[in-house]
Design a protein around this nucleic acid. Structure first.
Lengths: 404, 404
DNA sequence: GTAGAATAATGCCAGTTTATTTATTGAATA
DNA sequence: TATTCAATAAATAAACTGGCATTATTCTAC
């Protein structure tokens, strides 16, 4: 349904054109290579309008004519596609233990990669310096190639004001109010987009992963925290102070154990990575039989995965249990939103199948029949590259949106 | 941010005009009486465009020129307002124990009311007949007055397909697949809108209640079930099978008591009206001291309210406890969505203050600090009239939306 | 010749710009 | 005090223009 317009954007010629231009550009991106006539058909625009707008896109160099398509009894159609090499884009995923970055063309094809490790509790200026250095590693060859840099996208875990481009707070790094956009725009002189971690992943999945064919979905990242991002009509849903999505701090057990947030029985107390490792350690301390008893050094997520892969029943049980808890949280989301798809990110999902299976089973059991029938719960399509890819997508989005 | 257009509505002249027309109409409705010059200012449209479109609205009779405004050193502005008496609208709230209906003008001013009681477990055709009869009671005088009937809105508890206008399932009435739109359009020969109960209430609040000044909010109805409706940009958010909003069936207690849905520890098991009455009865059975011990007949919500008002400590404790449970469910919503406002409907909220206060306190305690600071949780502004008013709004919405 | 792709020429809708009319205030003047 | 006349603001008329729509034409293949 068309949204209620109240005091929204009014119609004008420039606006109408920018909308149509954006629609055509997106059709070429998604369905290309595609001839003009086909664009006219799917967009309901008239052929002359398409020709006119495509002309401007060709002039701008964002679109190129490539091959001729097959004729079915008439002139061969001239296929149009995005000129992927018109720009390069840099995407950075600024995590807690490392900074990962990639450069890509307009189709999201990988052009370069860089990674810098971050020690625990980094100094503020060191962390910023690391981000800048990582980007420089990728920017240098781009500059050298002569291809223009369209922009830089940054996905950063924690609380982010994407409008101002500020990392408001990143608890696991103990850093606050880093004006990343300003810092990076000054350093690199290109537009910078900054977004929260899960929302960055969600945009990556929307364009290049499991969200491609679907306008509305929910993306959930499971790590030391559990966060959700809501995608509606291919766009992120925002909230007043950008804090929506705190799935990890929804109560699933009224009188449950205390959580770091001060509340009781938060999903994060049961379903996060740290919670899982803690539960495994408790089991071992209570004398459970497991190969993990022979493990040296502190228990970790990775160690649990390894043990589970090698057949350790206890490790698997811990993973299955974690999946069950997460399934309860996701069943709540299924009942509350009736989404068509939930995309799951994080090592807990991508590294071993046990969590996912148990989670899916729990949702089947606990959520209502009708919404369960609508939803598919899938692991992220981009896996470990999701972060940088998502950050690249943040920049691409701007190019493909109506300008002004 | 402008939404990503993918294959959305393309820009055309008709579309542009219908958007601008709708914007102007809404500005007149919300800010009227208002002169043309002021409309131009707030919408950013040029004065001639406003004059032109207002001309059409005047011709159509939806808008009228009323008084002259105060001059501040120039020609007095001609104030425009919605011609409220251009149409009548009928709104019906089809509940479990009664059908309530009202007729109103375009400003939502009450013109007539009707109510028909429904006995338990009504026959399908009896129920449909009752709805039709109720509407006839209001339609007759409208027909007599000669004022055209714009349409009929129906809010119906349970699962509704608003696109087809079908009540898919109403568990508490044990009725299924009632094609209300078809039935009523055939009977009354005017457009009919059918919508789910909470979503109907939400639209009423959005236009005439606590949602007037706010584009995004969440409306929660607490009764024998607990349901939510999400409003984004003044419009309802929809989901694949129209089942979004099942807040009552989100788990708040992993190993909690069984719920009718088959799951455990659903919010509804703790926070609904029936759950509250059940808990009170359990307390009494266990010998709690209360004036309720002297009450004759079965315990009910109403009896509890009365006892609480008269100072019964146990009754108040039961209400406070219910508020606490509901607060946990709402804290989850606050963390998950970071909404600016939550509007609460239902007797539990409107009849006594204890539930609301306890609920608000619980949310303050249990939700995260940042989203809590953004949200205000308020009782519905329309109270017991919310249902029929919301149903009226369903019809008004269509008039004020862009046509086609 | 026919069919389909692409485009050129023209039309026309609807917002924009510019100028004009109408109506009021208020200060200067008689 | 009454009259005149800028100044100001609302509303509209006239002319302009941007951009989609319609129609006709060209191009290329079957």
């Amino acid at each position: 349904m068309t949204p209620m317009p109240r005091t929204m954007q009014t119609g004008s010629f420039r606006w109408m054109k920018s909308i149509n231009k954006s629609i055509i550009l997106n059709v070429i991106r998604e369905k290309g290579p595609i001839p003009r006539a086909e664009i006219a058909k799917v967009t309901q625009l008239t052929p002359p309008t398409v020709t006119n707008i495509v002309g401007e896109l060709l002039d701008a160099g964002i679109v190129v004519e490539s091959d001729l398509g097959e004729s079915t009894g008439g002139r061969k159609p001239i296929l149009l596609r995005i000129n992927a090499s018109a720009f390069s884009v840099i995407g950075v995923y600024a995590g807690v233990d490392k900074i990962r970055a990639m450069s890509a063309d307009l189709d999201g094809n990988l052009e370069g990669e860089a990674e810098v490790p971050i020690p625990p509790n980094p100094d503020r200026s060191f962390y910023i310096r690391s981000i800048i250095d990582t980007i420089h590693q990728l920017a240098a060859p781009i500059h050298h190639s002569g291809r223009p840099l369209l922009g830089i996208g940054v996905g950063m875990s924690g609380w982010v004001d994407h409008e101002q481009g500020i990392s408001l707070s990143c608890p696991s790094l103990n850093l606050r109010n880093i004006p990343l956009r300003d810092l990076l725009e000054r350093e690199f002189s290109v537009p910078v987009e900054v977004e929260n971690g899960v929302r960055t992943l969600a945009m990556g999945e929307s364009w290049f992963g499991e969200g491609r064919e679907i306008a509305d979905f929910i993306c959930v990242h499971i790590g030391n925290e559990v966060n959700a991002a809501f995608v509606k009509e291919h766009s992120l849903v925002y909230s007043p102070s950008f804090t929506a999505g705190e799935l990890g701090h929804t109560t699933v057990d009224i009188e449950g154990p205390l959580c770091g947030c001060g509340n009781r029985g938060c999903l994060e107390v049961f379903g996060s990575s740290v919670a899982m490792v803690r539960r495994a350690q408790e089991g071992l301390d209570q004398g459970v039989i497991s190969s993990l008893n022979h493990h040296e050094g502190p228990l970790s997520e990775r160690v649990l995965f390894e043990a589970a892969r090698e057949g350790d029943e206890f490790a698997r049980a811990v993973l299955v249990d974690t999946g069950r808890y997460l399934g309860i949280g996701l069943a709540n989301i299924v009942n509350l939103f009736n989404p068509r798809r939930i995309i799951l990110c994080g090592d807990l999902i991508s590294e071993v199948p046990y969590v996912l299976h148990s989670l899916q089973e729990t949702v089947e059991q606990r959520a209502l029949a009708t919404p369960v029938a609508d939803v598919t719960i899938v692991p992220a399509g981009l896996g470990r590259n999701g972060g940088p890819m998502g950050a690249v997508t943040l920049v691409l989005m701007k190019l493909f949106q109506p300008q002004h």
